[in-house]
Amino acid sequence: MPEVPLGAPEVSRKRSAGPGPIPDLGPERKRACWGILTSQGSWADRSPLHEAASQGRLLALRTLLAQGYHANIVTIDHVTPLHEACLLGHVACVRALINAGAHVNAATIDGTTPLYNCCASGSVGCLDLLLQNGAHTHTQHKHFPSALHEACKRGSSQCVESLLSHGADPDYEVSHLGSPLYVSCLHQHTACTKILLHRGASVNMGRGGESPLHAAVRQDSADQVSMLLDYGADVNLRDSNHQRPVELAAPGGKTKQILLAFEVSPRTLCQLCRLQIRKLIGRSRLKHLPHLPLPSMLTHYLEHT
């Protein structure tokens, strides 16, 4: 453990009796944050600085830093005060900790970063602060938690947009989760799916043998199925059970109707041209489409807007 300054309260080595007050984030968000806190083991060996950061007590946090508490003091599981502040979305505390030298890429023993916690809480303000101060959009190890995957899982579309704007790879694959697009489709977050596809995510990259279209069909998400087809999803891909998406669709449902209609009326020449042009432009250059000297109608056509 890092040194505790003279005169500072002794750091308890016992599990705290309670997590302290949690801001009004809504029942679902509270449960999500609580689950992440306990899974990270962050109640063990917590310092007063952790408590202040977790509860958003900016004055107390600044006082403790002024008394000599180190901004990167860690628990037994390597949870830092910055992890805590990001998980509860306390922007002012995050800024104060960064200004005090907090490591924006600090990782817990299971690889969780402050950036991941921002996506878990849906705090775009905290996430932007981290990215502006050098936070990495991806970890070095593919099996570690991914901020982009977490944002897609939670439906934090603003976090997805911000991560991609700062260079995150929309096709970053985690072995046990698959692609971000697959996660988004699996959890039925249409806004995240649209952002990923707009930024050039590979429409057929999923998890194992299952494509994002398979995931969308399993969830009976007609809006996502239509969107995936519009971006070039392959209806003939088969999953690990050798089934095509149409074979997974609920009989009589809207998803089934969309897939059956697509099979008898393939993509138009207009759609095929758009897909091919976007492919030739390349994913890294799609963001420059609005700046090309093209008529607005053509720009909108290429951007799917």
Rank of each mutant, 00 (worst) to 15 (best):
S184C: 02
L186S: 04
H198M: 12
C118D: 08
K153G: 07
L127A: 05
K142H: 00
A215D: 04
L228M: 14
G122A: 03
L163W: 06
H214C: 03
S202Q: 10
L196W: 08
Q188K: 13
Y116G: 12
P212N: 11
D110P: 08
L131I: 13
S162D: 07
F144G: 05
L127P: 04
A201W: 06
G178E: 00
N133W: 14
P170M: 07
E173T: 01
Q224R: 07
V174H: 00
G232E: 09
L163Y: 08
V174R: 06
Q188D: 02
C152A: 05
G209Y: 08
V124M: 03
F144M: 08
G155T: 08
C118T: 03
A151S: 02
H166L: 09
A191C: 08
L228Q: 14
S226D: 09
D171F: 00
H141D: 08
D110G: 00
V124P: 00
Y182T: 06
L131R: 02
S121K: 11
S165D: 06
G200C: 07
S175N: 07
D234M: 10
R199D: 11
V235H: 01
L213G: 01
E150G: 04
K194Y: 11
P180F: 01
Y231I: 10
H198Y: 12
L115T: 09
L213A: 03
T108W: 04
H138V: 11
S146K: 08
L196S: 08
L163F: 01
T113Y: 06
V160S: 05
V235P: 00
A191Y: 10
H198R: 06
L130E: 11
P145Q: 10
Q140D: 13
V203L: 14
S179F: 00
T137H: 10
A168V: 01
P180H: 13
Q188I: 10
T112K: 02
C119N: 15
G208F: 00
C152F: 03
D223G: 04
L177M: 05
D128Q: 10
S146H: 01
L196M: 15
H143C: 00
M227H: 12
D223V: 12
Q188L: 13
G134R: 15
C118A: 02
R207A: 01
H149V: 13
T190S: 00
Y231V: 05
H141K: 12
H136S: 12
L130H: 12
Y116E: 14
G209T: 15
S202P: 07
L129R: 13
M227N: 00
S156M: 13
N133A: 09
G111C: 14
Q188H: 14
C119L: 11
